[in-house]
Design a protein around this nucleic acid. Structure first.
Lengths: 191, 191, 191, 191
DNA sequence: GATGAATGAGACTTCATTCAT
DNA sequence: GATGAATGAAGTCTCATTCAT
């Protein structure tokens, strides 16, 4: 919010860089700043000025998805059915990771480059936490299940989906199935 | 069935290479044949002679763990309680992956380099399949759960554990907890 | 038609690389990009940026000689004596190959790396073709002699010269003698 | 002639090595002693014992062809038509080179590894010399043409043929044509 | 004599990052 | 701010030759 406003041309470059990076991420190409620069038609230096590392760029690419997830989570808080709210939130989370490689990478990373990323990841945790607490209050949730487990498990489900089928086909269906199984266990009482 | 027996010195070098690779894998260093050669104190060429690619070496490092898993799975077949047998097998699988990075990499890989690896991965699938079928026959298992889901989900659990805590501490406990949750869902009927 | 103009420093490096390569070629050293880089005092990467392969560099080194040959051939077209024109052209061709190893290599190569090289080789063939046709029109030329034979035979003469005396001494005289012999046969009628 | 007689098995190995090398040469594969050893099914060391360098092996492979050429040349000496004798000899020489890559390499080499090769190459020169002198005595031969030019020019013709068509097809026909042209010039008087 | 594992120099290439223009 | 040429460490891999068994 407090970033220095960019010159008009710089802003356009920023957009173009992110757009190209988005495409690369979608097609599974590893982000390389030189590569990005070439494709955008900019000098490497320019790209480096905007994004000091490939991680910074990747996090920037992931940001809209992260924001959308947080937004959805916040809306879910107003759902009157806590369990449905939690389910919906987790489903979105997994689906997003499955369809956006930048998101799964950023979500699984132990540390962040951009403050904004840290902020968003914290918001996401926080929302998840709240949704979990509500669901727990409303019914039976495995007592040994912690809010800090939500993100790792969603990452795990996304990863499992990708191990199952590295291609594109019916990843969403698989994700849904895996998540449903896991949620079944979340409700169950421990042995 | 075994490959041409190696000369004594060659065999010793093979051992040393694998041992060093094992250490590197354990400390999380990515395998690089040059690096391995330097640490073992051998010429690069020697290492390349034994292992044409880093993947071949990694798979070799993972082989004993894979064999142990298969062996355990086969013993589990004689357990009279099908559900306990399945649980025990999966727990071992996850624990092994969590404590041996070579295993999680090899298990998640879409293709193999060594025939032996393919063999072992197939045996593992096959055993898992049988154990799952027995458990299904003996009680309630999610009908939409396929044998082909076992390996991906175990990889997913191991991945989730590592996202949860990239360090060493209580990874085993976490793994057990995550697996238990998942197994809870495996037993449950779908919504 | 020219490629994007290079920055001044880049242009200077380009020149230096080509100059060093020229020297190496002249002293008979096989071109190796690493070697070139070291001698020029540049990083390997810089050399690779300018010339992706050793062939590209070799062809670049050969380009001026090729251009000179084409230019000479085009001037020869205005000679009123067709036979003298052909002779002069072929003599130049052989002399050039004998004194410039890059030329003989590039001329004999079945395929090219740089478009410019292909262009020049085609121009050369084309000019030779025309000169041969004129000579044929003006007098007796072996009927079984094709335009496509000119280049191979010039390469052959240059090769013969080099087999005769791998050193530098009187290669030009030898070349002239061999060419004269061949031209004698070109005029003669087949048996 | 004075070599220590080989043990029977060693002799068989020698034969097999040369046979494999012959095949490799024919299919255009560059001779590598390791490669040869692997294909023969022998240890590298054994191959090295028989042939200290790849050149030695290549010369050995070329020896029968060289011997055949010399033999033919010696028979040609009894031909009553000196010009026909010379022509026949040169045609054989070129044809042999065109169809046997080992021969063209060995013939063009400035120095030899095996004494036997040097011997044969000298015999070949000597025979050529004699045939040329006879032809000269019997009629018109370019006065500036020396016996030392025969071998280089035959190498040149063979090289030209190969530049003309790197593949196999009608190399012999081309060789004959090129040689005929050259011989036409050999007979002609210099300008 | 035979074996073939070991050697290691050195060729080739990539890429993240810097910095002169 | 923008540019993109330059950098060079670091990785991959090949191959001719040696030498211990």
């Amino acid at each position: 919010m407090t970033t220095t406003p960019l010159r008009k041309d710089a802003a356009r470059n920023w957009q173009r860089i992110v757009a190209v990076a988005r495409d690369l991420v979608d097609e599974g190409t590893p982000l390389q700043l030189n590569d990005v620069a070439r494709r955008v038609g900019l000098g490497v230096g320019t790209v480096y000025r905007h994004f000091p590392t490939a991680e910074a760029l990747l996090e920037t690419v992931a940001t809209p998805s992260l924001e959308a997830l947080v937004a959805h989570g916040e809306q879910a808080l107003s759902d009157t059915d806590p369990w449905r709210a939690l389910e919906g939130f987790l489903l979105r989370t997994v689906e997003a990771q499955v369809s956006d490689p930048s998101l799964s990478t950023v979500a699984a990373a132990a540390s962040d480059t951009l403050p904004r990323t840290t902020e968003l990841k914290q918001s996401l945790s926080s929302v998840g936490n709240t949704l979990l607490d509500r669901a727990r209050a409303a019914g039976t949730i495995r007592p040994d299940f912690a809010s800090a487990d939500l993100v790792p498990l969603m990452c795990g489900v996304a990863y499992a989906v990708q191990v199952h089928s590295p291609g594109r086909a019916d990843r969403l269906a698989t994700a849904e199935r895996y998540l449903a199984t896991l949620l079944g266990g979340l409700r169950a009482t421990p042995r």
